[in-house]
């Protein structure tokens, strides 16, 4: 039998184990969101910090009131001003296009990796992971030198005589797409590879033995079997790409609207903290929907 003192110690240990990370995440993750929500409903001001409180004691005709002022205008601006809707729409469009492109680039690579002998695969896997460990900022920066007007790509194409005038790629949406595909490619390759690696090759052999053409066998067997990996990869690319800031800022032009960058500019350049907060809340809602959808799909996949 365990003594009472020992049981108490156990309970205390358990409480600490749960309590410490719980308190940390509550204080530094959950609480800040309530502040963002509060701020998204307050009024900007030329002050330090640049917003007014939403709850105030007010004296009016000798009587004391607790006044709560919620400024809905921040949200109305989001809907009313075409700029924000356009930024949301173009973030979704750019992220979706980049996801499809990343899938097209990643699938052949993942398939090639899965067809390599098992003893080679860990090295290929490491080779895919290594750029992911290398700084994200550095990888985006590397493309600036390649894509600019007098950059390496143009120099190469000019020397080969393929073009007469340098192409303008840097500071356009094309550069942003290249940047997203490049930066997030490992996230697309890994889940697809993990899926393809587990496939039973006898299925394909059986199909081919029965007279199925390889391309048809690929389309009707390999692709459907890899579907969970494809879905996971698409979401791992799409979700961070929507809120991306560094890539559109360094590779995109002034006219490349993306919502993460809009929030940044609203905050740092315009110093409109309440509006930036409203953008953050809208962004969250925009992202929560696809994430919940994804988790549902995953849960369904697990049931099957």
């Amino acid at each position: 039998m365990k003594g009472k003192a020992e049981r108490d110690r156990l309970a205390l240990g358990r409480l600490l184990l749960i309590g410490v990370p719980f308190a940390w995440l509550g204080l530094f993750f959950l609480l800040p969101f309530t502040i963002v929500l509060k701020l998204s409903l307050s009024e900007p001001a030329l002050a330090q910090p640049p917003y007014l409180p939403i709850v105030e004691w007010v004296e009016e005709a000798g009587e004391l009131y607790l006044a709560i002022r919620l400024r809905v205008q921040n949200y109305l601006t989001l809907v009313g001003d075409g700029l924000y809707l356009a930024a949301f729409a173009s973030s979704l469009r750019i992220a979706a296009t980049a996801t499809v492109l990343a899938l097209l680039v990643a699938f052949p690579i993942a398939l090639g990796m899965a067809r390599c002998p098992p003893r080679v695969r860990p090295f290929l896997l490491l080779a895919v992971m290594l750029p992911f460990w290398t700084s994200f900022l550095i990888r985006v920066y590397a493309w600036m030198g390649i894509l600019k007007d007098d950059g390496l790509l143009n120099a190469l194409l000019l020397t080969l005589g393929l073009i007469e005038e340098p192409l303008v790629i840097l500071n356009t949406e094309t550069a942003v797409l290249i940047g997203i595909v490049y930066s997030y490619l490992p996230f697309m390759i890994l889940p697809i590879f993990a899926n393809l690696e587990k496939h039973d090759p006898s299925l394909l052999e059986a199909a081919v033995d029965l007279g199925c053409r390889p391309i048809v066998a690929f389309w009707r067997i390999t692709v459907p079997l890899a579907r969970p990996g494809i879905l996971a990869g698409c979401f791992l690319v799409f979700i961070p790409a929507v809120g991306e800031f560094v890539i559109p800022d360094l590779l995109g032009g002034a006219d490349t609207l993306m919502i993460g960058r809009t929030l940044w500019l609203e905050f740092f350049t315009n110093r409109d903290w309440p509006l930036a907060s409203a953008v953050a809340i809208a962004m969250l809602l925009l992202l929560v929907v696809p994430i919940v959808f994804f988790l549902r799909l995953q849960a369904l996949g697990r049931l099957r």
């Binding site: 680039v105 052949p108 690579i109 398939l111 090639g112 990796m113 899965a114 067809r115 390599c116 002998p117 290929l124 080779a127 895919v128 750029p131 290398t134 550095i138 990888r139 920066y141 590397a142 493309w143 030198g145 390649i146 390496l152 490049y182 490619l185 490992p186 390759i189 393809l196 690696e197 496939h199 090759p201 394909l204 052999e205």
Partner: peptide
């Protein structure tokens, strides 16, 4: 998948890894 990599797979791997590594190599 037991059957070894075909020419298409090798091309995909070569181009894929070139895409992943060339920008960093150029930077270096």
């Amino acid at each position: 998948m037991r059957r070894g990599p075909g020419p298409f797979d090798l091309a995909a791997l070569t181009l894929g890894f070139a895409f992943l590594y060339l920008p960093i190599v150029i930077l270096v």
